[in-house]
Computed example of a mutant assay.
Amino acid sequence: MVLPVRFVLMRPRNAENLGAAARALKNCGLSDWAWVTPEVEDLGPAHRLAVHAEDVLGGVKRPDTLDAAVSDCVWVVGTSSRKVEGKRRLSPRAVGEELVARAKQGPVALVFGDERSGLTNAEVERCHDLSAVPTAPEQPSINLAQAVLLYAYEVRMAHLADSAPPPGPLPLAATDAELARVEATLEALLGAGGFLVDEKPGRTAVRDLVAPLRRSRLTRNEARLWLAALHTVRKHFPGRDDP
């Protein structure tokens, strides 16, 4: 999957998070990401956690500012639970879908704050829209690498849905008349077999039995198969006319 979707990490502090984030991006077919002024010196732990994602870890960009990281982007979303007038607060799923849609026009970016304090007020203002994970109030914050995986997954799912081949033509649905014939044939069969004793309650029973067939939206071929099966069983009750 080649999508111009960039994950921007502001001031990341934990090497393990960087390695896990690299693996998460690789899991979801993504590789465009950037660290802005990382506060990590020893990347050894990152390499240990970036299993089969060393290429993603090694290919990270290191711009000096958020402006430089997103200068070519047509849409920038910040991950923050803050409410800011004039900025939408989107769910991760909505963000994934819109990132994929807008990526057709140019690069797009998703910005994550540092593990300790998140995005600054200035960084939030720099973003076009915001997004937050609807976590439980008892534990509202999530790990940086987990957040990267969650959003990367939503991007991948949106991309797969967007690139899926169009569905083929639907089979012809059974008409109301065909379903009525199934119902009448079933009623005759149940009457011949002694299941229906009282005509009025019998009609209610038959309708209840046919209701699931109507709800299932039988195709024309399925309705004809039901009729053929019912007529075959009906032959075991000689002397009674078919409907």
Rank of each mutant, 00 (worst) to 15 (best):
R62Y: 14
S31A: 14
L225C: 01
T65L: 11
L144Y: 02
V36P: 12
L144R: 01
R224C: 00
L218S: 05
R217G: 06
V51T: 15
V2I: 15
L110D: 05
L30M: 12
A164T: 00
R48Q: 15
P12F: 07
L190K: 07
R89N: 13
G193R: 09
T219V: 04
R13M: 05
R13Q: 06
V182G: 01
E154I: 05
V133M: 15
A161G: 10
P107G: 04
R215H: 09
E41H: 12
R156L: 15
L144T: 03
P166F: 11
R6G: 06
P140E: 09
L3W: 12
A94K: 14
A53D: 02
R82H: 04
L18C: 10
P137Y: 05
V76R: 10
L150A: 09
D72Q: 13
G78F: 13
H159C: 13
W75T: 03
L227S: 02
D176P: 01
E178Q: 15
R89P: 04
L196V: 13
V210W: 00
S216E: 10
A15E: 07
N143G: 02
G44Q: 07
L209D: 11
A46S: 10
A229W: 02
L189H: 01
E178F: 06
P92Y: 12
G193I: 01
A158S: 14
